[in-house]
Design a protein around this nucleic acid. Structure first.
Lengths: 356, 356
DNA sequence: TCGGTTTACGAAATCGGTTTCGTTTCGAGT
DNA sequence: ACTCGAAACGAAACCGATTTCGTAAACCGA
């Protein structure tokens, strides 16, 4: 059977008309496929207002939609952004995903998501899978352990890191101003009368973010001449809670102030405290990172270092778009953008848990 | 410049070798592109063990990866699953996303995600954007208001609904056994001595899920001869909390039992209760849907109807795959699968909030 | 040994857009 | 009126895989 226009709109039959191709549209509008293509991408080399209208009319009438695969093949641009998240259970991640989704959609891009669940092997697999799928760029909230692979990827396509850096550096990174946030929490606790401060962390969490916060914490303590330490909870509940109990009891009555390094640690802290009673022991003040919904509620409100997830997401996509534009515009290695570190200021939500 | 094999692996230069094409691999292995293609897709029409090994060796050595766009174009299969979520802030959704991601990856598929934020317009836009992107199938956790569009989509490609049905029906749906879960919570409260039960809902939530749970609730009450009602909180805090305060005070001392229809309502309830004191008023029992992390912690543990998100996700992908296989295998309208409703049993987590 | 069927594989068409390059048309300047 | 440059558009190559179809070789039972 010779190809034969595969007749487009057969309204007489009313049946689902066969998918139209760009050449059908072109024929219908009395122009060439090239012109329709120009119309679709409103390219330079404008066309007459009249032909533009004619093409628009045909497309409108037939409900034509170009096939993405064909477009991708020739132009090698997919309008897809790959996103790898370490831990979606973390509300920080879901908020981020929502922000990324919105920012990407605003630029006509879709998101391909992968979730590593803090498993480096899965992260590595996601990396290659998304790249193979042809994403234009990649947003990575790494769980660690793939620094070389990520750096290599950043050499082949635009990559922006989210929140967590790789060891070697050299890749764009968007993050919060962790040092200042730590200082803010320390300040809140000190103002609430705490005399000795602890930063609670987890043994299993060895991320750069944790390290940055811990460093900032000890720096801030010595700057202010305050007593305190970084307490690392053992993984998986019991032991950790025991250690925590000790810590709290040991300093009971001594105006202790606790900072949870992230939302998960805070939940464990809450569990531990629940064994001591429904409200905070007298003189104990607490604060935490990550503004989860329950932070408004537990202990009458917990003072929180809140990250500006929406702005972070927006800047991530913005930066990624810059890189993508550079790649598709310039030839060869002409204009390489220098890696950039972008810090988005968060803010402290002062609540009841650090009132005097 | 004539095309000229665009020479593949120039190890002498060591520089990033130009992307290889399937025909380069074929040439290198001394076979035709068709054979390499067969190898890549291990198609029927087996090849000699010897040629197979030769091709494998070349691919291994060169690190060749087929371009997805080209593959998609010809085969019109993308191995992409589109996912539209109503509200990612809801931990149910993020858990679901993680499950879907894992199940899809296990089948070699990637996820394209869109988030409607409960906005029907954004949902509609996501629908067309994902379809235009060429996804093989679609998972929709609808926010409502697009029932016709979704049904239409289901006519054009495989669609599986997640948790929330469309009015007309006729589309595959995977959901929890909401009626039994409601009965389980009612039972827990009754066993804890509650004499009057309230199901707390939100005015803005008019989803089929809410309706189903409300129906099941009143049915269960009358079946047991218990007193109670469905209380609809006004949106946005204050008013709603007022109404709730009234409800609680009105029945104070009368052994009231409250069920939050979902996690968000539960948080609002917690906020309201916080104004009354840190622990539950005497005689008040509560229970909620959706097993969020803080449910373990608030009030010493809240009895919860937990959905089996992992299994739900697995079945969604499984069902979608069935449909995708049917579409790509059979010709024309030959074998249409009948729409199916799949209920995944959840379970009740009994905790302190419904102890006697 | 021979017809007939399978099996292994290659040549070439094909998917549906985009892009390059060339041609025609149009308008402005002198 | 004539030239020239830009604007509008068409013909055809092209992106890189898959798929169809055809052919030669291998296999197989009689």
């Amino acid at each position: 059977m010779p190809k034969m226009a595969q007749t487009a709109d057969n309204w007489e039959t009313g049946c689902a008309m066969a998918q139209m191709r760009i050449k059908d549209i072109a024929a219908e509008a009395g122009v060439s496929p090239a012109t329709v293509s120009r119309y679709l991408n409103n390219r330079p080399g404008q066309m007459t207002e009249e032909t533009r209208a004619r093409i628009a009319a045909v497309i409108e009438r037939t409900g034509y939609r170009p096939r993405a695969a064909a477009r991708n093949l020739r132009s090698s641009r997919t309008n897809l952004i790959g996103v790898i998240l370490a831990d979606i259970a973390n509300p920080f991640s879901s908020a981020m995903l929502e922000g990324l989704s919105a920012s990407a959609a605003a630029r006509g891009c879709s998101l391909m998501t992968a979730i590593s669940g803090n498993d480096p092997a899965k992260e590595a697999e996601s990396l290659t899978r998304l790249i193979d799928a042809g994403v234009d760029g990649l947003v990575v909230n790494t769980c660690g352990g793939n620094d070389e692979a990520i750096a290599a990827a950043a050499g082949r396509l635009p990559v922006v890191l989210l929140d967590r850096d790789v060891a070697a550096g050299g890749v764009d990174l968007v993050t919060s101003n962790n040092r200042e946030l730590v200082a803010g929490l320390v300040d809140a606790l000190a103002a609430a009368g705490s005399e000795r401060l602890c930063l609670l962390t987890e043994a299993s969490d060895d991320s750069p973010v944790r390290r940055e916060r811990a460093e900032a914490f000890t720096d801030e303590l010595s700057r202010r001449g305050l007593a305190g330490e970084v307490v690392t909870l053992a993984d998986g509940g019991a032991t950790g809670v025991g250690r925590l109990d000790e810590t709290i009891r040991g300093y009971a009555g001594k105006k202790l102030g606790l900072i949870a390094v992230n939302g998960l640690v805070f939940l464990r802290l809450t569990e531990a405290l629940a064994q001591l009673g429904p409200s905070l022991p007298a003189g104990l003040k607490i604060a935490t990172f990550d503004d989860y919904p329950w932070n408004h509620v537990l202990f009458g409100g917990v003072t929180t270092a809140a990250q500006d997830t929406l702005t972070i997401a927006e800047r991530v996509v913005e930066r990624l778009s810059e890189r993508i534009d550079v790649v598709t515009t310039t030839v060869g290695e002409a204009a390489k953008l220098a890696p950039k570190r972008i810090e988005i200021p968060g803010h402290i939500e002062y609540r009841a848990s650090t009132s005097r």
